[in-house]
Design a protein around this nucleic acid. Sequence first.
RNA 1: UGGGGUAUCGCCAAGCGGUAAGGCAGUGGCUUUUGGUGCCACCAUUCGGGGGUUCGAAUCCCUCUACCCCAUCCA
Length: 759
Amino acid sequence: MINGFIMDKKRDFLRRIVAEDLESGKYSRVVTRFPPEPNGYPHIGHAKSISINFGIARDFGGVCNLRMDDTNPTTEDTEYVEALKDAVEWLGFKWEGDVRYTSDYFDKLYEWAKELVKKGKAYVDSLPEDKMREYRGTVTSPGKRSEYANRSIEENLDLLERMKNGEFKDGEHVLRAKIDMSSPNMKMRDPLLYRIRHAQHFRAGDKWAIYPMYDFAHCLSDYIEGVTHSLCTLEFENNRDIYDWVIDTLGLEPPRPYQYEFARLNINYTVMSKRKLLELVNKGVVSGWDDPRMPTIAGLRRRGYTPESILNFCEQIGVAKANSVVDVAQLEYAIRDDLNKKVPRVMCVVNPLKVTIENYEGSEELQALYYPHDVPKEGSRKLPFSKEIYIDRGDFEENPPKGYYRLTPTQPVRLKHAYIIEFKEAIKDENGNIVELIVTYHPDSKSGSDKSGIKVKSAIQWVEAKSAKEVELRLYDRLFKCEAPEGIEDINPNSLQIVKGALVEPAVIEERADVRFQFEREGNFFADPIDYSDEKPVFNKIVALKDSWAKKSKPKPKQEPKKPKPKTKQTGGEMAELNEQEQALFDKFIQKYGLNKQVASIFARDEVLAKFFEEATKEYNSAVTVANIVANDVAKELKSKSLEELKFSPKDVAILAKMVDEEIISSKIAKEVFEAMSQSGQNPEQIVESRGLKQISNPDEILPIIDEVIAKNPDNVAKYKDGNQKLFGFFVGQVLKATGGKANPKVVNELVSKKLQEA
RNA sequence: UGGGGUAUCGCCAAGCGGUAAGGCAGUGGCUUUUGGUGCCACCAUUCGGGGGUUCGAAUCCCUCUACCCCAUCCA
């Protein structure tokens, strides 16, 4: 850390942008914000956004605001505000100052709206909704502007005022930005700024009859709060143009915020959309927003997930722009990993099978550590032991499969923290089901002082019959049975299994060392914060332990048929046909200049490039070299700039080509020169001169460098000699790097090859 | 269909012209009084396809393909 910045080079693209902006002095401190609309319960997707926004502020020594984007009075409620605040706090973040509300800015926003009207950049439209939609056009055809768009500024101001005063009914008028009804970006076709809504706002009450739209309110709210980086999800990419338009058109003083988008979180075997989550709750598929199977923060929390595990998860999955679906196994790993370091280990028998130890009399109390040797935490509890105990039904097999480590008629097993027992007899009911086991124990095999010399393959959990406590276990599985569930039809019918007669050792209830426990060999469990009582303890299964035995022994749990992934191999893909005129040009470029087909077709389709090329080649008659530079490097520049903006001329390119042809510079350096030229507009020869970029072809100069590189990388030399041909490029690269790219690569290649042979 | 995006291992994801990072999942082995944990090893001759430029391309150029977003008075 330097100056509070994390200097880690492995930054995600957002952090890279922030770092650059801070370094360039664009902003003196970073301000982000987490801006949910309080119209639903936050889920793990919000956690990602929280982690990004608060995380970036934290990493760069800035601040992050929590803002309720409450511009739609009909959907929002204070209930959700509380849930959102709660979620941020639970995850361990602190927002700057008080919670912000877009509704607190309504007055200021309204002033800005009037400003826009006065500038002739907004108007009151009175088109009915369906007409407005019709006028908007389609993605392929331009829209047309409403006839109301040419109302006078005075009239607009008057109408807007009266809209605000509640003189009109919902839907009668709207305020729209006057931008461009034929914009290819549909969002820019005169977007709505305000609509009339006679509704009770959960904070503003009935003060307002008009409410600002997202596109108007969001950018300005960011601006008001001094936000520097407005981070949102990908679906707002098209809205960025309006974001900028509003701020620019209002002519607001810098510094101003800029919007950047990242991919929202998706996880397989679950749904994330508000609508689908709501459906689960409303149809009673789950018990509520905090059902432990829900991907909501409340659900995860009630399931027993820790905030740390969720934050770690968010960090692990990274931030990028590709739409992706994270494997739920990654989330499960995060919670296992966190809990492994934290929770006490205790014993719970899920499926009790009575065991009588024939040769044991009386009772005793064993001392047992809460944590295994590899968890550096202290604490222990007393474990009652007597003749009658329970073990799990799964830990005894009369006819064990191969590789079975637990108790069998011929295989002894250790009772964890206690003695080694050996099978004697199985008592069965009339149906042949085992109801009880008679075993014997080895008195000298006590845990910690074992002198029996008996080797067992495993130690199993158990509870003493009289002292054991009955608990309810709620075993959760994925809510959906398929990876990409659509809705209720994909629900996993076995997502909740309630086990009533499970038995735990008494300390779990009486001592309650924690709210989370690892029931050894079973999984991590959480005392349900709502339904748990000492009389009727209830534990939620947070996550199972990894179980490589189950994986090995069971063939495979039946997987739901996956949606087929059509991985078709792709063939060449023909380029669209050239039209007649282009064809003629194409032929000319090939015949007259001897260009290859690829370059010729680029020029045949691109008039600007073609002209540039022809002018350059007039200056220096080496068509192929010139053409390659034009078709590659000039084309790149022209992607983001117009011809007029180019700082170099065809002549400059001609000179550059000439230097390449004459081997004054290598083509690698030519790229560098080109870049400098297009940035500064300097003459290429000057650039080469002032930067000393002339090519080094003299072996006497290059050889020592090669020797040095070879000497420095003995292991790579060995690998190369071992047949790793790829490493050749590595050596060439190292040498080139050492010469600042100036060494003649052809010469270097030759020499490296020779030297490597000798080495 | 116009525009805006995105494609690197089964799933995430680094990489920005010079040896294809890392995590999850998976597979072997060692350790283990949890079939847990930990440790070790293996797991992309190749970056959506095809061309081009270059001594050298996942990275630059052209092109094709697939997927996502946009025509709410939602956010």
